[in-house]
């Protein structure tokens, strides 16, 4: 259970899509940044357009030991 890749570098304005390839639900959540995908079931996707440059750490709200980082250039 992990985000692949755990660290992703993108440019401001890019569209990023997370797809849950697991059979249990997951989320993409960064409370401070207001990032919340809601619960994503198996094979469900969620897309987010990054706006501002910077580093954004996120977790799976359901499995908080899952971590990811989005680096926006």
């Amino acid at each position: 259970m992990k985000f692949v890749p755990e660290r992703l570098e993108v440019a401001a304005g890019d569209r990023i899509t997370w797809t849950n390839r697991d059979f249990v639900p997951h989320s993409v959540t960064a409370r401070a940044a207001g990032l919340e995908s809601g619960d994503l079931g198996q094979d469900k996707s969620w897309t987010y357009v990054v706006k501002k440059p910077g580093e954004m750490a996120y977790i799976c709200r359901l499995h908080p030991v899952m971590h990811g980082v989005l680096v926006v250039r």
Binding site: M1, K2, D22, F23, V24, P64, V65
Partner: peptide, 16 residues
């Protein structure tokens, strides 16, 4: 084998 990562994550979560 597919289930194993979920169990490992649960273990980490429980330890946390």
């Amino acid at each position: 084998i597919k289930v194993r990562p979920a169990i490992a994550t649960h273990l980490d979560h429980a330890k946390h």
